[in-house]
Design a protein around this nucleic acid. Structure first.
Lengths: 148, 148
DNA sequence: GGATAAAAAGATTTTAAATTCCGGTGTTCT
DNA sequence: AGAACACCGGAATTTAAAATCTTTTTATCC
């Protein structure tokens, strides 16, 4: 469904959202060990989000990462799209090409009509689920009760 | 979503379902050129389905493949599971582990509750969509109107 | 039986994703 | 200033998926 890279990425952003704040940054070493993700690799991934403006980064001792935006304005959709692109939101399950056209004159994959309902629900889920909402979800629960 | 291999596989099975019959087998060369899939690679994939009992194969001239079962008894779910496994039906979007447990005492991924509805709809789609239904769908339409 | 056609199977290569290595740059602290 | 720390960025390596090569087996037709 999502690439390895992308799942690491989203989990890390959530972790940063929960654990960091303006005065409390969190560094790659910590994230990597907590989420059990190879550190150097994670570093690369976070760089992508920094460039995309999702994260802010600070160098030196006391350095680390924090969210750059209001978490309620960041959807899973955006986070995924930055890493994996929008293929899963645009293409049919079996097809390789877009095949989501409104005009019925173009090519359709064999399960286009049946799958499009599923795909739009999937897309809606990703678009509606914000980082903020996920973070709130954690407030009620104990830490080790959840999988990150 | 699905692996390259798996999409080739499903498309080929559909093609075989439509084009072949008991007295009219269809060979890899034909399928590969029609669906634009590397022939030798496709050959390997079809072997998996033969072993799984989904396809029947015959060697020699006039040889080729045909369905081994009633197409209405074969779901997309089975076809996908044989190639890609059941990961997409069992795991949460962000997590790596199952996390679909009924008892709320075990670990849950951050979006478990919200995603599970989407996942079950996805799973239902794959389970309900049979090869037979897809084949019927073709009966009404012209060939080059669809994407295979 | 020999030529031909097609699947089966094992080994190998190619490609892309995942991961690591390493030198560089900016920051903080003493 | 200088040491330590943490992010940055390019290159190289590893791993797994995708694709190809080659040989073998089986069946058909003349």
């Amino acid at each position: 469904m999502l690439s390895n890279t992308c799942r690491y990425a989203v989990r890390s952003i959530i972790y940063i959202g929960i654990k960091s704040s303006v005065d409390q940054l969190i560094n790659v070493k910590k994230i990597a060990s907590e989420l059990d993700v190879p550190m150097q690799f994670l570093s690369k991934i976070l760089q992508i989000y920094v460039k995309a403006g999702i994260l802010k980064s600070f160098k030196g001792p006391t350095g680390g990462f924090s969210l750059a935006l209001d978490p309620y304005s960041v959807s899973l959709y955006e986070l995924v799209k930055i890493i994996d692109g929008d293929q899963i939101f645009e293409t049919c399950v079996i097809g390789t090409k877009p095949c989501y056209s409104k005009n019925s004159n173009s090519m359709k994959c064999p399960v286009h009509d049946q799958y499009s309902a599923v795909r739009s629900q999937l897309t809606e889920f990703f678009k509606n689920e914000t980082l903020g909402a996920i973070m709130d979800n954690y407030a009620n629960k104990t830490d080790d009760f959840l999988m990150l």
